[in-house]
Every structure is written in structure tokens, then in C-alpha cells.
Design a protein around this nucleic acid. Structure first.
Lengths: 137, 137
DNA sequence: GTTGAAAGACACCATCC
DNA sequence: GGATGGTGTCTTTCAAC
């Protein structure tokens, strides 16, 4: 399970998932088929969940990013999960311990959109919002 | 800026960033060079920040994921930023509004590792941790 | 694990509409 | 903005080691 070469492969793919197998094999000092096989296995095992891109949503007009905590009321867990799954501007949503039930991140065009979105949430529970100013990592 | 085809390309790349330009061009009903050019432009503009993978860290032995809020004390903002940037088990770290100064997500092997990590944070400020049970999105 | 060879697929570039 | 065609490269899948 713990394999230094596989970790290196994962690190490289994390930085650039469109790298060619040839280039990758040079960087880890293995043959291309060997690297291919290692990647296939990690895909089968689900260690590599998927290949994706990071998008700069600010450049697409989503100027506001918020973290929202919600304390679900009236036992509306299932409804909330359904609602949040349908939102395509939610980056992640975690079920967490502590006072809050869920913490999720949402991106919105402007303050008007923020207000509308928060309003949508009120039926499900009590919310607490934190605006994201910047990202250290 | 708002372009339906580009949005479709971004959506497809988000689901699978290793898709070939050929396959992508079929899905958006354009020629391969046309798609290549659109992607190049979005890369140049920084709309596409990078190509990456999603890793299932639980399968790599990181069984605990936590959200941590920290209220920085003694004006140690810069020190904290430096510290957190060096951690390779931190997925994101946001500067946020509200009571907390930063919110970040960290993955750790077990409870022992959690305790050690929290201890490391104490010089920088007061922390509040939320364990992540599961992910809705 | 490696190398080498084959077929097929792909990316890139120039050219053209 | 878009499409087409040619060239060289890459990936993949074998085989044998």
C-alpha cells in the first residue's frame, strides 16, 4: 500500500494530470508500461478517484466565495442533502462533528446572489456564513 | 467571456481531464483544432488553473479528516501562513471573515496524529476542530 | 520489473474557408 | 471565428527476457 514510487506518481499527477506516460516514466525512472500498470492498479483500487481541472471561478464572474455552516432543523437532513446535491455552485459539502451539521463552500456572482442563496437555505436550518477573502493554499 | 461551448468544455474536463481532444471535440460538435484553441486560451487566461487528480486518502491510510478554524494570536499571521504552506497534508486554507481568521482542512492517519498536529498549532492561535464524517458532495 | 516492435490514436501545424 | 489534411509523436499491447 505504502509505495514511494506510487506516491511520487500521485504527486506528479496531482500537479499535472495531463502529463504523458513517457514523461512520467522518466521522472520516476521506470519504463512506460510499468508506470501504466501502476496507474491502472491505483485507478482500479479507487486510490485515484478521478482526473479533473481546477477552475478560476473569479475569472468566470463568480466573485464571492463563502463557507457556510448549517445546523439542520426539523430533522430535514435528507431534504438538505438532496437540495445541496442539486447545486452546481457548491464545491464541497461535509457532514461534520460539533455544533454545525454540515459545512459547505459555495461560489456566487455577487452579494445579491449571496442573499438569495442564504434565503433558500433558511427552511433547512440555521446558517452561519464566512466570506473567503483569499486562499493560502 | 460567457460562452456556452467553453462552459461545456470546462464541465467535461472537470469530469475527466485526461479525455482526448478528439473525444472532447465530438462531444461539443467542433473540430479538434477548434477545441484545442479554446482550451489554450482558457489556459492562458488562467481560467483553467491546472490539471489534477482526486486522491482517496482514506485508501492511503489517512483515516481522519478535519476542518480547523484558527484565531491567530500575537499577530502571528505571517508565521502561520508560512507554517501551513509547508504542510503537505493540508488540502486548502482560506482566510475568512468572522470570528476565525483561517479555515483549513487537514488529513491525518489517526487520533494520535490529530493530537500532535493540534499541538503544533497552539503557538499560532486558538483552534476549533470539526471532524469530517462524510462528504455529501 | 525490462526492452522492442507494431498498430492505432493522437497532437500539432500549415493551409484554407 | 471555424474545418481539413499531413506528419511526427505518443500510447498501448503484445512478445520475449
Amino acid at each position: 500500500m505504502k509505495d514511494l514510487i506510487n506516491e511520487k506518481i500521485l504527486n506528479i499527477l496531482e500537479m499535472n494530470s495531463r502529463i504523458t506516460i513517457n514523461e512520467l516514466s522518466k521522472q520516476v525512472n521506470l519504463s512506460a508500461p510499468a508506470v501504466r500498470e501502476r496507474i491502472n492498479k491505483m485507478e482500479e483500487q479507487g486510490i485515484i478517484k478521478d482526473y479533473t481541472i481546477n477552475i478560476d471561478y473569479k475569472k468566470l464572474g463568480y466573485d464571492v466565495e463563502i463557507l457556510i455552516e448549517i445546523i439542520i432543523k426539523n430533522n430535514r437532513y435528507k431534504d438538505f442533502k438532496e437540495f445541496i446535491s442539486e447545486q452546481d455552485n457548491v464545491e464541497f459539502c461535509y457532514r461534520v462533528s460539533g455544533e454545525a451539521c454540515f459545512v459547505f463552500k459555495v461560489r456566487l456572482e455577487n452579494m445579491e446572489a449571496v442573499e438569495s442563496f442564504i434565503d433558500l437555505l433558511q427552511p433547512y436550518g440555521h446558517t452561519k456564513s464566512q466570506f473567503i477573502f483569499s486562499s493560502v493554499i
